[in-house]
């Protein structure tokens, strides 16, 4: 009897029971709020991209439209993407656009401010299939492109753009 119910064993059991109860008390509110924070979302092959793009631009179902734009332009040319430094939304839009731009090679430019004139003027337009502006202003000399919600614009370049 002494060995089965020694003080050591009782202390051991109480220690672990106490730790278990305390762990549950700390965890349950966090797990509950994490588990109930989101409703069921629509499913779909691009549902993660759509969610990100909706979050950043406010527009729904953007991924499919972006893919069809990228598919309609010359595959051998690059897609140029402009994002803003120190702007997480802009950076996220840029990377999601790069993800969807496959099989084009892409080039990401992170610029200070919102005017990419300098960088654009240095490029050879013959090598560019499209320019994507992520929370960046399109230069006035560039033809208007397709705008998605707020902050995302894609200018495809079927012919040489001249300044």
């Amino acid at each position: 009897m002494t060995s089965r119910f020694s003080y050591g064993r009782i202390a051991h059991a109480m220690l672990w029971c106490g730790l278990a109860v305390a762990s549950l008390a700390v965890s349950i509110p966090k797990i509950y709020s994490g588990a109930t924070a989101y409703p069921l979302r629509p499913t779909g092959p691009l549902h993660t991209c759509d969610s990100y793009l909706k979050f950043a631009t406010g527009a729904s179902g953007v991924s499919k439209d972006l893919i069809s734009i990228f598919q309609s332009i010359t595959a051998s040319k690059r897609v140029i993407i402009f994002t803003r430094k120190d702007d997480a939304f802009s950076s996220g839009l840029g990377m999601t656009s790069a993800y969807l731009a496959s099989p084009h090679l892409v080039r990401l430019f992170e610029i200070n401010g919102t005017h990419p004139d300098n960088e654009l003027s240095k490029m050879n337009p013959d090598e560019v299939a499209a320019v994507v502006f992520c929370r960046i202003n399109r230069p006035a000399w560039l033809p208007a492109g397709k705008v998605f919600g707020s902050g995302l614009e894609v200018v495809s370049m079927p012919e040489t753009v001249r300044r």
Partner: peptide, 14 residues
């Protein structure tokens, strides 16, 4: 259930 209601995370996708 949680995995279905959440999207893929940032690194999970990219």
């Amino acid at each position: 259930y949680l995995s279905f209601v959440h999207t893929l995370g940032w690194d999970g996708l990219l």
